[in-house]
Design a protein around this nucleic acid. Structure first.
Lengths: 148, 148
DNA sequence: TTGCATTTAAGAATAATTCTTACTTAATTA
DNA sequence: TAATTAAGTAAGAATTATTCTTAAATGCAA
């Protein structure tokens, strides 16, 4: 989740859509809001089910297409994953991830130290442009650990 | 890739299969070898196509199932990804990844500094067990950058 | 040598994603 | 406010990736 206020999020959404010549439609807005308010890093299907409550006739395809559009203009990102459906990440600020190997849950955390990590010099040639970095931990979450 | 010698790799493969009561079949061996020798982090289909040259009658299902089995006993791991088919990683040593956002190429690199990163204290409760960590960079590789 | 794990075979099922075409709706802007 | 045009709806199909099913044959390991 993005930690700014709902109103500020909406302003940002509108501004960035405008800047990219994307119309501010109720569906598009609802899809963005659903993604931002989702607890866990939601799949297209998670968002589809949420938005369907408000727009019963919306199709999965519209939701998925819209999520990809929002990713293109960087209002969302795609979280790294190991299996299953694509997971969207509404947190576009610098942050890091802890994955549960059992249930697939992804938990965000922040770290000024981790934010500062730089790509190694020896890759400067092979990768002339580097946009982002993330530290990813893998473990077992409390819930899954208790269940055995 | 694993940087030990081919003979050592094979010894390790045999030992770990034995320890896990898995038979040393020619197919299983070939699948492991193909994964270890693959340049890029291969998909099941990549491995299927390589092993098919030696075993023309092998099925994709056998290859995929075997790769999952080898992952279970930690002879392989699964690389984080953002889209497309599951990518296997034959390098089971501590290492880190650089992803190309255009072509999906994943390049390994090592870093003693990055190996030492620890999960933040504030997640100790939510995640009582942590097994591994990795730093993941995203950028554009030289080839894709030249192509525009 | 024999038991059982493994592979083969072939098809089916499922999940996830993307595309197609045509029609309708509605956000923007001139 | 009317025109333009992006966006959504609809329904189905196609594609890609993965996993399962059943049954028979094979061959590794004790």
């Amino acid at each position: 989740m993005n930690h700014s206020t709902p109103a500020k999020q909406l302003d940002q959404f509108i501004e960035i859509c405008r800047r990219n010549n994307l119309k501010i439609t109720p569906q598009r807005t609802a899809i963005y809001q659903a993604a931002v308010n989702a607890e866990n890093h939601p799949s297209a299907d998670d968002i589809f089910r949420i938005v369907s409550r408000e727009f019963p006739s919306i199709s999965f395809d519209t939701v998925n297409r819209t999520l990809l559009t929002l990713t293109k203009i960087r209002l969302l990102t795609v979280a790294e994953s190991y299996k299953g459906a694509r997971r969207f990440d509404p947190n576009v600020e610098d942050h890091h991830h802890m994955h549960c190997l059992k249930c697939g849950k992804i938990v965000d955390f922040t770290s000024d130290e981790f934010n500062k990590l730089l790509a190694p010099e020896q890759l400067k040639n092979k990768f002339p442009r580097v946009f982002s970095s993330r530290v990813v931990f893998n473990g077992i979450c409390e819930d899954c650990d208790n269940k055995g």
